[in-house]
Amino acid sequence: QKPIVRVFLPNKQRTVVPARCGVTVRDSLKKALMMRGLIPECCAVYRIQDGEKKPIGWDTDISWLTGEELHVEVLE
C-alpha cells in the first residue's frame, strides 16, 4: 500500500495524492488545484489535529503528512 494523503478541496471535492519524500504540499496539489481553476497562492491548507484545523505551509514536505487528511480552503 502506497503512502497517501487525502485532501478535501473547495466545493465539496476531494482528491488523494501520493505522499512522496522531498515533494512539497504545493507541488503535490498544484495539478488538482489548477484543474479546478485554483492556485496555491489563493488558498490556505490545513491539517486536522485533535479535531482542530491547524494551518500548514505550502512548502511542507508531504511525506510528513502520510495518512493524514488535509483541507484546502479559498482565502477570502
Rank of each mutant, 00 (worst) to 15 (best):
V72I: 06
P18Y: 15
V5L: 02
E52N: 10
M34Q: 13
W64Q: 14
R26G: 14
K53D: 07
E69D: 08
D50F: 05
P10G: 02
K30F: 05
T24S: 09
K2I: 15
V25R: 00
M34E: 14
E41I: 03
H71W: 11
A32Y: 04
V25Y: 00
G37D: 15
C43W: 03
C21G: 13
Q49E: 12
V45M: 11
C21R: 15
N11S: 06
Y46Q: 12
R26V: 11
G57N: 07
P3R: 15
D50I: 12
L65D: 03
T24P: 06
R6T: 06
I62N: 02
P3Q: 14
K54R: 11
E69L: 04
V17I: 08
C42W: 03
L38K: 03
R47S: 12
V23S: 10
D61P: 10
R6P: 03
V5A: 02
R6G: 02
L65H: 13
Q1F: 15
T24M: 07
G51F: 05
K2Q: 01
G57I: 12
K54S: 12
K2M: 07
T15R: 02
P55A: 10
D27L: 07
L29V: 07
I48K: 14
M35A: 15
E41R: 09
G67L: 06
N11V: 02
E68N: 08
G57S: 11
L75M: 14
D59Y: 03
L70A: 13
G67I: 02
G57W: 05
E52G: 11
Q13D: 04
L33C: 14
K2L: 04
H71T: 09
P10Q: 01
C43Y: 10
E69A: 06
Q49M: 11
I39E: 15
K31E: 08
V25S: 00
N11E: 12
C42F: 05
E68H: 10
V23P: 02
A19T: 06
L70K: 01
P10I: 01
S63N: 11
G51L: 09
M34D: 09
N11G: 11
L65G: 04
R20L: 12
E73N: 02
V45G: 04
V23Q: 08
L38G: 03
I4E: 04
E76V: 06
V72A: 03
I56L: 08
K31T: 06
G22P: 01
V5P: 00
A19C: 07
R6E: 05
V17A: 04
T24I: 04
V5R: 00
I39G: 14
K53P: 07
A19L: 05
C43D: 01
N11K: 05
A32F: 04
P40W: 14
M35T: 13
T66Q: 10
M34F: 04
K53V: 08
R20C: 08
G57E: 12
E73I: 01
E76I: 02
G22H: 06
D59H: 05
L75S: 08
D50R: 09
T15K: 03
K12I: 01
E73G: 06
R6M: 04
S63Q: 07
D27A: 08
Q1R: 07
I39N: 14
G67P: 03
K30L: 05
L33I: 14
P40V: 14
I39S: 13
T66G: 12
T24Y: 03
A32Q: 06
G22N: 04
D50N: 13
I56C: 09
L38M: 13
G57C: 14
L70H: 01
P18S: 12
E76R: 09
M34V: 13
I56K: 00
W58K: 02
R47F: 09
G37Y: 02
G37R: 09
D61F: 05
G67E: 08
W64F: 12
L29A: 01
D50K: 14
K54L: 11
C42P: 03
C21V: 15
R20T: 13
V7F: 14
F8G: 04
C21P: 09
I48M: 13
P40I: 15
V16G: 03
C42A: 12
A32L: 09
I4K: 03
R36V: 04
G22Q: 09
P55R: 12
P18G: 10
Y46R: 06
N11I: 01
L70N: 01
H71M: 10
A32P: 13
G51Q: 11
Q1L: 14
V16P: 01
Q49A: 12
W58L: 08
Q1P: 03
I56P: 00
V16D: 13
E68Q: 12
L70S: 01
P3G: 15
A32E: 05
H71C: 12
H71Q: 13
V72L: 05
Y46W: 13
V72Q: 00
D50E: 12
L33Y: 01
L70G: 02
Y46L: 11
R26Q: 15
R20K: 14
V5C: 10
I62K: 00
D50L: 07
G22Y: 04
L33V: 04
K31Y: 03
V17R: 02
L29T: 06
V72P: 00
C43K: 00
I48H: 11
E76S: 12
D50P: 04
I56S: 02
E76P: 13
K12H: 12
K53Y: 09
L9H: 00
E76A: 07
Y46T: 10
P10L: 01
I48G: 08
P40A: 13
R36H: 05
N11H: 12
V7M: 02
P55Q: 12
E69H: 09
C42N: 14
V17H: 01
R14W: 10
L70D: 00
L29R: 00
V16E: 13
T24V: 04
V45A: 14
P3V: 04
G51N: 15
R36T: 09
E41T: 10
G67W: 07
L65A: 10
V5E: 00
K54E: 06
V17Y: 01
I48D: 11
V74T: 15
P55V: 13
G22T: 03
F8S: 11
I4T: 04
P10R: 01
Q1K: 15
A19S: 09
R6H: 04
G22K: 03
L38A: 05
C21A: 15
T15G: 01
C42S: 14
V72T: 03
D59L: 07
K31D: 12
P3S: 15
C21Q: 15
S28E: 02
L29P: 00
V5F: 01
L33E: 03
A32N: 07
I62T: 11
V72C: 08
K12Y: 11
G67R: 09
E41Y: 04
M35R: 15
L38V: 07
W58A: 03
E68V: 10
P10A: 02
D61Y: 09
E76K: 06
P18T: 11
V25P: 01
G67V: 05
L9M: 08
L33S: 02
L38W: 09
K12T: 06
I56Q: 10
L33N: 03
I39V: 09
M34C: 07
L9C: 01
V74D: 13
N11M: 07
R20D: 07
R26L: 15
C42E: 15
I62E: 01
R26N: 09
V25L: 13
K2D: 13
W58T: 02
S28H: 01
H71R: 08
K31H: 10
E68W: 09
T24H: 04
V45N: 01
W64S: 14
P18F: 13
V23D: 05
I56T: 10
L75V: 13
R47M: 06
V16M: 10
D61W: 04
V16H: 04
R47L: 07
V72K: 00
V16T: 11
V17F: 04
Q13L: 04
A32G: 08
T60A: 11
M35C: 10
P55N: 13
G37Q: 14
Q13S: 05
T66P: 10
E41G: 10
E69T: 13
E76M: 03
F8N: 13
Q49T: 14
Q49P: 04
V74L: 14
L9V: 01
K30I: 04
A32T: 07
K30E: 07
E76F: 01
C21T: 15
P10T: 01
L38Y: 11
V17C: 06
